[in-house]
Design a protein around this nucleic acid. Structure first.
Lengths: 247, 247
DNA sequence: ACAATAGTGTCTATCAGACACTATAAC
DNA sequence: GTTATAGTGTCTGATAGACACTATTGT
């Protein structure tokens, strides 16, 4: 088979088309029983004076996941998280007006994140309700609304299959705290008694600490639990209760 | 906060580190009740004379998913597939000796793929058992063994949640054909009667065609079904039977 | 005492799996 | 008839959800 080689240049390693590779971070936290996401107002670039996800270029000698951690830290001051997962890669040719960029999007969960602090070359950093982003009442630059929507889908699925919901909470937590995480992310109410029994019965999810909560405003103090591995896959999924066979 | 700007260069759009962006394809098919994957022997590059996934550079003005389709077609002659999903992006700094490359990996399912044909700049193309790749008895270049293993995990999960198993089959298929797909991918046997009842009861999975199979070697001819949307999310997951609460 | 939250008992409907059974074809 | 596969009936054990109930704290 003889073919004209008018497009062979792109197969030549010395003439590959150069791309910029960035990372963008979708950082979730729960604040006041609302699912929120960290956004920044960049100090420069095409998203200056607009809100956007924290993001930045991957360095020439840096793997992608470390770049995600570094960008998160330098842009928002956020340092630790139990959970960082790759969401997907977005690379429409026109997604950034400056140049050809593909961005690797990640999503993470940070407990107790009151207000992020603006980092280098960042004007402002704040938390915004995920719902407002997804329904576009709070606008984000680039394709970041889509990325947040995809991250929300990923989070909703992930808490069914793994113990990651616990990473929204402190080291020790009550079962009712964990239930609130599910209720917030799924946007529904769960029956406290059944939740209790179900989650206690799941292997590899939570372990009792032997301590009891002292902060309860009233009522019987709750037993405190920990989750040793938030990435652990649950033996049985904790299923979102919307699925009915008569759907 | 005053900081040395020794690393500010990377924030300058005109001086971002240039990356090559490639796509790599994990193409599954079922052949003789074995799950197989398409591999090629590139005619040049660092994987010449080794087996590797079909892959290639994304063009300067091309979105990533079209690039995946193009690469698949030009390298292996494979043109159509019902299912193409992004798997993840791999970008360790040393994963390609030539240059800094990040690759966006995709997985796809092609029914009835007897033998792929080597495309441009490809010496050979063939199918290989997925198991042999994952257990490294069949070696692949770069990090392609990891990518195939991740794709297998993705496929095993995806057939629980969507109708994608049907994309291994022809337009019309018997329920026992569909059962064989699950058995092959999960590596176990399912009880035919229960499978039949379960899959017939799931909304949005299969629809009867009104025809019956004429190719049955013996026995009662089976009703033929179609799947109108292989990407449809099942209302109720078709669960892999390994998960027991006493696990 | 009451209010509030934690946690358990129990009933019921549903569903997965085991397996016997019937149905319909080729031979 | 036998054999093979398609498809159904039916039982059982597990589980999710509803909801009543007990348990343990503060006020």
């Amino acid at each position: 088979m003889v073919t004209a080689n008018h497009d062979q240049a792109e197969y030549d390693p010395t003439e590959f088309p150069p791309f910029a590779v960035t990372v963008d971070m979708v950082v979730f936290t729960i604040d006041d029983d609302r699912l929120r996401v960290v956004v920044i107002e960049p100090g420069d670039g095409p998203a200056a004076n607009r809100w956007a996800l924290p993001g930045g270029f991957v360095r020439a000698d840096e793997d992608i996941e470390p770049a995600a951690w570094r960008v998160l830290r330098t842009k928002t001051g956020v340092t630790g998280t139990d959970h960082l997962a790759q969401l997907g890669t977005y690379g429409a040719p026109d997604r950034d007006p400056r140049m050809r960029v593909v961005t690797v999007a990640w999503w993470a969960i940070i407990p107790d994140l009151p207000e992020p602090v603006p980092g280098r070359r960042v004007e402002e950093a704040r938390l915004v309700d995920v719902d407002d982003v997804v329904d576009a009442s709070f606008e984000l630059a680039f394709d970041h609304r889509t990325i947040v929507a995809d991250a929300l889908d990923a989070a909703r699925s992930e808490i069914e299959l793994t113990a990651v919901a616990a990473s929204f909470l402190d080291e020790q937590f009550r079962i009712s705290d964990l239930r609130q995480v599910y209720e917030t992310i799924w946007g529904l109410e769960l029956e406290p008694g059944n939740f209790q029994r179900k989650v206690r019965g799941l292997k590899g999810f939570i372990e009792p600490t032997g301590h009891r909560s002292s902060e309860s405003p009233s009522g019987r103090p709750a037993e405190l639990f920990t989750c040793s591995d938030v990435t652990a896959k649950l033996a049985v999924p904790f299923r979102h209760p919307d699925s009915r066979s008569d759907a």
